[in-house]
Structure formats: C-alpha cells, structure tokens
Amino acid sequence: MNTYIFSIVTFVYMAAMVVYVAYLAFRRPVVARLATIILLGGWLAQTTAIGLRWYESYEMGIGHAPMSNLYESLVFFSWTIILLYLIIEYRYKLSILGAFVTPFAFLGMAYASISPSVNETIQPLVPALQSNWLISHVVTCFLGYAAFAVSCGVSITYILKKRYEERGGKGGLMAAFPSSEVLDELVYKSIAIGFPLLTIGIVTGAAWANYAWGTYWSWDPKETWSLITWFIYAAFLHARITRGWRGVKAAVLSIIGFVAVIFTYLGVNLLLSGLHSYGGG
C-alpha cells in the first residue's frame, strides 16, 4: 500500500516541478501558488505513506522506523528536501527557487520507485541496525543532506544570476530571481543549517559505531566520505569570509560539496565496499 502511494507521490512531485518551471517562464503568482499546493499535497501524501509503512512494519512483527535500506532512505531524503524547501518558501516567499530544488526530490523518488536494483519491500533489521541510534543518526544526516540539496540548487541559481548581473542584464528570465546578495545569503543559511546537522550525523554515527563495533572511527569509506563532505563545507564556510574566495568560487565549493554528499550517500554503497552496506540494497 505504502509503495503504491510513494509511486503516486513521484508523479505529483514531477507535476510540481513542471509547474515551478512554468512559473519561471510565466511568472504569474497563481502559477506559483498552484505549484506550492501540488507540492504540499504530495508531501502530505508522502508523510502519510511513511507513517503507514512504519505501521505496516509493526503489523509484520518486525517494527522499525522506515529508514533501514536504500528505498526507505531515498524516500526519506526526498521528504526532508521538500519539508525544508516548503519552510524556506514560506519564510522567504521564494517560489522561484522551486524549479531548482524540487528536481532533487523528484529524482530521489523516481530512482526509488523505478530502479530494479532498489528493493522496496519492508525488511527486518539486521543486528547492527537494532539500535536507538538509528533514528537520530539517519534523521540528522538526511536533514543535513536536504539542507545541502537546497544550498546546491540555490548556488546554481546564484551563479546564473551573478553572471547576469555582471553583464548588466535587464529583463528576461533572470530578472525574476532575487538579487545575488539574497541568494548568497540563502546559500550560506542553508549550509549553516546543514553543517551542524552533518556534524551531529557524523558524531551520532561515531557513537553508534563505538557501541556496535568498539571503534568510533575506522576510516571506513562511508565515514571517510562523510568527513570529506565535512571538509568541503568547512572550506566553504571559511571561503565566504576570505577575500578572493567569496562569491562564485564559494558557490562552486557548495556545489562540489553536494556532489560529495551524493557520493557519500549513494556512490559509496554502489561503488565501494565497507562496513556501512545497509543503504545499498
């Protein structure tokens, strides 16, 4: 039942994405409002389905939070991206960013629903995952990832807008975007949210590893890649206050940071081997 709702949600997110892109082109407030309503509807359905999946796992007698394999994590990742985006859209009235952020959530859901290598059944937890750390570790990591997804979307917008401003551009599509200063601030804000969350994610992971395996850090590829991501965003935070590194260079760092996030999340499990293999199947 829940997987059925999730596949519908995938299409709803695609529809929201299309309407957000249409808003870029037409710039009519009614279009933006429609996009928001579609997105919110999809998100509520997804929330219900996550709750349902959680409930179903208890019905099966193997109750656990739906965060234990690749399918569940992709669904949760999309969910956090949309949650964070809706908050930002509500607070900053920036429907224009929707076209750059919703694709990440749509792609996550599409990958989960379509790829044959992603197993969508509810599976029981292996011993290493039977821990109270599971929820706090996964939730903080994915909230952090979602914040980074937003920052990546905004960074792309920032670079486009900055080029446009430097050309002394007037009119056209780019005129509708907030000024590059506002976008820069938003990139910083989302990373300022993501970075502490990633830090907590790494720390809870280390604490958990120490409980399960007796080592808080073993330079496992997953751990190392999360640290690489941390280094890149730490570099971003320092770049932003350093002459010669502000602006486009910092925005590029934030995009590279998100590439590292995606590699940490998916690449490590699909391409490298290590202890942290739960997310791979």
Binding site: I232, A235, H238
Partner: peptide
C-alpha cells in the same frame, strides 16, 4: 584563512585515495 581553505581542500582530496 587561505591556508585553512587550502588544507581543508587538500584533506578532502587526499582522503579519497584511501576509499578507493
């Protein structure tokens, strides 16, 4: 701060080796 940025990026890059 430039040294900080350089070191952080260097750490990020060389750390990749041990994951491959």
């Amino acid at each position: 701060l430039k040294l900080t940025i350089f070191l952080l990026i260097t750490l990020a890059l060389v750390s990749i080796i041990g994951t491959i």
